[in-house]
């Protein structure tokens, strides 16, 4: 790791102010992704602001019948929360489908949203990568792209967002809440939180440099059969090739978001109107703009078949 200084802060506002004072500084909470990347010198922050003791570790009811999840709530605690298991089952399921028990014990809600891609070319510092080093090119395009994106990608980057949790958050219409160094707060719908790469794949979210995530708000429960189906190369502890988060109602309508295929959880509300017609109709509309490479074209078929499995299981439930 490159040398860095470290400070601990007591409040979210102090954290945002501390990061603003030192250009390039980063927040650290669980640290499971950031420290990994710092060891590889892919992330080289000169200063770390430890937000772990800012008290954002509660899950509280909201006035409109939903829940506000503190930014520091661990993936384990979130998955295990009785209200989440009961009313937001897709979120519990997505969380336990991700990482390992050790990582889920440290990884936080905000950190999970902010984790970086696992594109092998992003990790290999001998390869060009516009996300890691803007302007150097993309080794993934024309490279081994089995794990990489098929939609929402650009000529500059075809990496995917690796989170399972975020896919469930997207299907639940979660809202990301933040605070900046001036103490201004903001509520960002999850659909607008992760940016598509276009020509700036190194800019991954709509956050400003001094903006700290304080929590994630879930709207009131919408019921339905909630499922998260993840397809991967190993039965456990592997990133998704394709994952489907779905909430299917008794009348056959519902919501669908897909992971493992795009730079952000992929959901197109208009495609969901096709749900009563079956998985193919939804997939055709959801992935109409896909441009896969030869290595990852299978993901299109895999989305359709995974969704078909989810829909038929929902009908049987």
């Amino acid at each position: 790791m490159k040398p860095f200084t470290y400070e601990r802060v007591a409040t979210p506002a102090q954290a945002a102010a501390a990061v603003l004072r030192r250009p390039g500084a980063k927040f650290i909470a669980g640290g499971t992704n950031l420290l990994d990347l710092m060891k590889l010198q892919i992330e080289v922050p000169p200063h770390l602001v430890d937000v772990g003791r800012t008290g954002l570790d509660k899950i509280d009811p909201t006035p409109d019948g939903g829940l506000r999840i503190g930014a520091l709530v661990t993936n384990t605690d979130l998955a295990a929360d009785r209200r989440i298991r009961r009313d937001y089952g897709v979120l519990s399921r997505a969380l336990v489908a991700g990482a390992s028990g050790q990582l889920r014990n440290k990884a936080t809600t905000a950190g999970n949203l902010l984790q970086r891609t696992r594109c092998p070319y992003f990790y290999d510092t001998n390869q060009p990568c516009n996300k890691r080093q803007p302007g150097t090119g993309c080794a993934g395009i024309g490279g081994v792209s089995r794990q990489l994106g098929v939609i929402g990608t650009s000529d500059a980057c075809i990496a995917t967002h690796p989170s399972d949790m975020a896919v469930a958050m997207r299907v639940l219409d979660a809202v990301v809440e933040t605070i900046d160094a001036q103490g201004r707060t903001r509520a960002i719908p999850i659909a607008e939180f992760h940016r598509l790469p276009d020509n700036t794949p190194h800019i991954e979210t709509s956050l400003t440099a001094d903006e700290l995530i304080t929590g994630v708000k879930l709207p009131a429960p919408i019921g339905g059969t909630q499922m998260y189906r993840k397809v991967r190369d190993r039965a456990s502890y592997a990133f998704a090739l394709v994952s489907v988060a779905a909430i299917i109602q008794k009348d056959g309508t519902g919501r669908v978001a897909v992971g493992g295929i795009a730079p952000r959880p992929w959901r197109i509300e208009a495609a969901e109107t096709e749900l009563p017609l079956g998985a193919k109709a939804v997939t055709d509309r959801l992935l109409a703009d896909a441009h896969p490479a030869s290595d990852n074209a299978f993901k299109i078929t895999l989305v359709e078949r995974t969704l078909a499995a989810v829909v038929s299981k929902a009908k049987a439930a």
Binding site: T32, K39, G101, Q102, N105, K106
Partner: peptide
């Protein structure tokens, strides 16, 4: 592995198992 992939460094911190390689000592004050 020193990257949280193998689990050889697993310890129990505040009652929870974690990868000791992906945590800074100063964070455990």
């Amino acid at each position: 592995c020193d990257h949280g992939q193998c689990g050889a460094c697993t310890v129990i911190a505040d009652g929870r198992r974690i990868n000791a390689c992906l945590s800074l000592a100063v964070m455990h004050e």
